[in-house]
């Protein structure tokens, strides 16, 4: 009996210490969405149960090792205890009830997370290797996701190539973006701040870098941003280079190409225009308009040396005018 009492006390002690310890270091990032509240609630319950079960199993084992260790010179076997059916039933049924409760709570929280606000604004999200772009109902496309605080939005997400996954740790939820279908991500930001959406599904070479800023701001700031974006879009649409830049930023070129000379999957665009490019067959061409137009319209015809085995550049559905705009933009990148 004495042993059981000691172990019982120790189990409670270790469980409480484990829980307090885990809790004090701050396990989860800040809660920035309404949906994160029920998730964190369930998570906290998980941590408590985990701490308890961990103690419940490790403490008696450790205690046995110390208290019942074989004495010097003792060569006998231990007591012959084969089992105990009521005990076995207890530790089958109690965990069964616990997991059923957890499953119920899981379903319940899920329903809470998925609550639909019919007035939620809809933003289209496009994922491409390896960039995010956000198309606003106001008619412009952005590389940053701006959201007003305390308003539910629904992201309608599409992928142009492979599976990606939309994840903002502070929002807690995650949703894959699958080619060939539209998936939905419903979120109500509750904390003003700037976060990052990071692609959580391996999507090829630059998966690690597939991220975009997510900025939650007050309604007033949000409205101002929308207005400025509309103005910018209108201004940029006036010049070919401006249109080209917009296009390059939104359809995903920048997932593979940088404008600062560093190399991602594709060659950098910095100083590309007018330079001498060595191709995989050893010949050299000048990167003039004709070459660049061909490179964009039919990427597989001329491959730049050193890029034979990386992920090939995809063929985009672009009009001739769009390609001209892109080239005009490339020409500005000295």
């Amino acid at each position: 009996m004495r042993h059981f009492v000691i172990v019982g006390v120790l189990v409670v002690l270790v469980a409480v210490l484990t829980y307090v310890g885990l809790n004090s270091i701050g396990l989860m990032p800040v809660e920035a969405s309404a949906q994160s509240v029920p998730i964190d609630w369930l998570w906290n319950l998980d941590v408590r149960v985990i701490s308890f079960l961990f103690a419940l199993i490790v403490v008696p084992i450790a205690y046995s090792l110390i208290a019942f260790r074989r004495k010097k010179g003792d060569t006998t076997d231990a007591e012959h205890i084969e089992g105990n059916t009521p005990l076995e039933i207890t530790w089958t049924v109690v965990p069964l009830i616990v997991v059923l409760i957890f499953a119920y709570l899981g379903a319940y929280t899920l329903a809470e997370i998925r609550v639909v606000d019919p007035s939620a604004a809809e933003i289209k999200v496009r994922a491409i290797q390896w960039a995010w772009s956000f198309q606003y109902p106001e008619g412009f496309t952005s590389k940053e996701l701006h959201l007003p605080v305390n308003k539910q939005v629904v992201l309608k997400m599409e992928s142009s190539d492979v599976i990606h996954s939309f994840w903002v740790p502070e929002f807690r939820i995650k949703q894959d973006v699958v080619p060939g279908r539209i998936t939905e991500y419903r979120v109500t930001p509750i904390l003003v701040g700037s976060y990052m959406v990071r692609c959580a599904e391996l999507c090829g070479a630059s998966h690690a870098y597939m991220q975009a800023p997510v900025i939650v701001s007050s309604q007033a700031d949000y409205d101002a941003w929308i207005a400025s974006q509309k103005a910018l879009a209108a201004a940029a649409a006036q010049t070919p280079a401006g249109r080209g830049e917009q296009l390059a930023n939104t359809i995903g070129c920048r997932g593979c190409h940088t404008i600062d000379g560093s190399k991602l999957v594709g060659p950098s665009w910095q100083g590309l225009y007018g330079s001498q490019v060595t191709l995989s067959d050893g010949t050299t061409v000048t990167a003039n308009d004709a070459y660049l137009i061909e490179s964009i319209a039919n990427p597989s015809i001329k491959i730049v040396k050193g890029f034979e085995t990386t992920t090939a550049m995809p063929k985009f559905d672009l009009t001739d005018a769009q390609i001209q705009d892109l080239v005009a933009y490339l020409a500005t990148l000295k």
């Binding site: 199993i57 008696p60 084992i61 046995s64 090792l65 019942f68 260790r69 074989r70 003792d74 006998t76 076997d77 231990a78 007591e79 205890i81 089992g83 105990n84 005990l87 076995e88 530790w91 089958t92 965990p95 069964l96 997991v99 059923l100 957890f102 499953a103 899981g106």
Partner: peptide, 23 residues
């Protein structure tokens, strides 16, 4: 979650096996 139940049976039975064992 149901898998936790038979797995738990193993753990608890192990603990009971070790309990009072002469190691």
């Amino acid at each position: 979650l149901l898998v936790a139940v038979p797995t738990g049976v193993k753990f608890f039975s192990w603990v009971a096996t070790i309990w009072k064992g002469k190691i």
